[in-house]
């Protein structure tokens, strides 16, 4: 009996491995932490763009309205793509757009905004990229929608028309 049992058992294990490998083939091997939504806005402090002033997160998100945090840089090409969409969102009354300028030269950032206009109500400087990490971001651009100090939506990569209408629906 024992002799018969072992080959059967072994075959079963190999069948299992086969199934797992087969299923694994169809999964992406690139990791993206998109399902992790941190509920609370992280606490951080940073310098403001164009002003010699430090602000903290609790000051920025004090009011009870919607905030859109957008991480951008003048050297990032997809940021150019999504810029017009940000300009459109800027028109919304109850939405404040906060830019986090990621690892950028101030001059380049200025000319970027002069060229494409400034959609941001407030820009925080992130010279060494640590503020973006507090947000759980790992690239530019990334966008977060905040309501009542909670992150309710996170978009990795540039905004598109779909995510734009989603944001509009949420903010209404």
């Amino acid at each position: 009996m024992k002799v018969k049992f072992f080959p059967f058992f072994l075959s079963l294990i190999f069948v299992l491995i086969f199934i797992v490998f087969y299923k694994g083939l169809n999964k992406s091997n690139i990791y993206a932490p998109d399902n992790i939504i941190e509920k609370k806005v992280p606490s951080f402090s940073g310098k403001l763009f164009n002003q010699e002033k430090e602000v903290t997160s609790s000051e920025i998100f004090a009011e009870k309205k919607f905030y859109l945090v957008n991480i951008w840089a003048s050297w990032c090409i997809p940021c150019r793509e999504e810029h017009s969409l940000l300009m459109e969102l800027n028109k919304m009354k109850n939405l404040e757009i906060i830019g986090i300028n990621y690892k950028d030269k101030t001059d380049n950032a200025k000319s970027f905004l002069n060229e494409l206009k400034n959609p941001y109500d407030l820009i925080i400087l992130d010279k060494n990229g640590t503020i973006s990490i507090e947000w759980g971001a790992y690239g530019v651009p990334e966008t977060f929608l905040i309501s009542d100090k909670n992150i309710i939506k996170k978009i990795i990569g540039p905004l598109n028309t779909d995510s734009l209408s989603e944001i509009k629906d949420l903010v209404k």
Binding site: L25, K27, N29, I30
Partner: peptide, 19 residues
């Protein structure tokens, strides 16, 4: 199927055949 520093062109069809 694995994520490695050495990138090879991948193709699930080939993977399935070898599997």
């Amino acid at each position: 199927i694995l994520n490695s520093v050495h990138t090879f062109a991948n193709d699930p069809e080939r993977g399935l055949f070898i599997l």
